[in-house]
C-alpha cells in the first residue's frame, strides 16, 4: 500500500518540511508567530477585541494619534514563546455578549493551532486563552456631568 496521498492534511512538521536542514536552518521570529496568532484569533466570530484593559485603552489612543497612528495592532493581546520546533501561545480576548465562551475559546484555539502549524511548521504545545471582558454593545453617549 502506498504511503503517499494526494491530499496530505498533516501539519508541515510531519511532512518533512523540517525547520532544521542540512543546507542551513530556518528560524521564525516571535513577532511572526504573534501576528499569525492575532489574525487567526480575530477571524473567529464572537471575538470582539483583544488585549487586557490597559493595553486596549492605550491601543485605542495610539490608533487615533494623528502621528504614528498605525491602525489596529494585530499582535495586541497575544504573547508567544517560540522554540526551535514548538510554540506556546497566550491570548487575551474580549468576546461579544451572548456567545458561548467555551465554544468561542475552543474555536479560537483550534483556528490558532491550525494556522500556526500550517504556516510555520511549528508544533503548538498549548494555547491559553483568558477572556477578560464581555462587549455589551456600543454604549450611548456618556451621561453629561450633573455640575458644571
Amino acid at each position: 500500500m502506498s504511503q503517499q496521498t494526494s491530499t496530505d492534511l498533516r501539519p508541515a512538521t510531519q511532512q518533512g518540511h523540517a525547520l532544521v536542514t542540512g543546507q542551513g536552518k530556518t528560524s521564525i521570529a516571535d513577532s511572526v508567530v504573534e501576528k499569525i496568532a492575532g489574525v487567526a484569533a480575530r477571524e473567529v466570530s464572537g471575538v470582539h477585541e483583544m488585549g487586557r484593559g490597559a493595553a486596549r485603552t492605550f491601543g485605542t489612543i495610539k490608533e487615533k494619534l494623528p502621528v504614528g497612528g498605525s491602525g489596529p495592532n494585530v499582535t495586541q493581546g497575544v504573547k508567544v514563546e517560540v522554540g526551535e520546533r514548538q510554540a506556546a501561545i497566550d491570548i487575551d480576548l474580549v468576546v461579544d455578549y451572548g456567545v458561548s465562551i467555551p465554544d468561542v475559546s475552543q474555536s479560537v484555539r483550534d483556528n490558532v493551532i491550525q494556522r500556526i502549524e500550517r504556516m510555520t511548521g511549528l508544533e503548538v504545545t498549548e494555547v491559553n486563552i483568558s477572556v477578560d471582558d464581555v462587549f455589551l454593545g456600543e454604549d450611548s453617549e456618556p451621561e453629561p456631568p450633573r455640575v458644571q
Binding site: G22, S27, V32, K35, I36, V39, V74
Partner: peptide, 23 residues
Amino acid sequence: LPVSVFVDDIQLPDELRPQSEPP
C-alpha cells in the same frame, strides 16, 4: 555555503494592513 533563512516578519493580509492615509 549553507543558507540559514530567518523569517523576521510577515506582511499582513491586505484587509488588516494599516492604511497609509492619516485618520
